[in-house]
């Protein structure tokens, strides 16, 4: 199925959950947060959240930036 991850389309197997995606991307040791179709998916629900074709996924982190 096609998922859009951080703005890029990727082909990924059906039945993938959030934990599986994070492992696939090699991000399991990263501090991150995920939004699917503009809704937060808490880390506590990564195992139970399964993606649907066409889901828009944002995976973010904290970086230097900020004020003025």
């Amino acid at each position: 199925m096609e998922l859009v991850i951080n703005g890029k389309s990727e082909q990924l197997p059906e039945g993938l959950n959030a934990t599986g995606l994070i492992a696939h991307l090699g991000l399991q040791d990263e501090r991150l947060a995920m939004e699917v179709n503009r809704e937060i998916v808490p880390r506590s629900r990564f195992d139970s959240h399964f993606f649907k074709p066409g889901d828009q996924i944002e995976i973010v982190r904290a970086i230097g930036g900020g004020a003025h």
Binding site: L25, I59, V60, A62, I63, A67
Partner: peptide, 13 residues
Amino acid sequence: TVAIRRTNIGQSK
């Protein structure tokens, strides 16, 4: 203050 931005995917960690 920190900014929230997309994680780099497939880049050097």
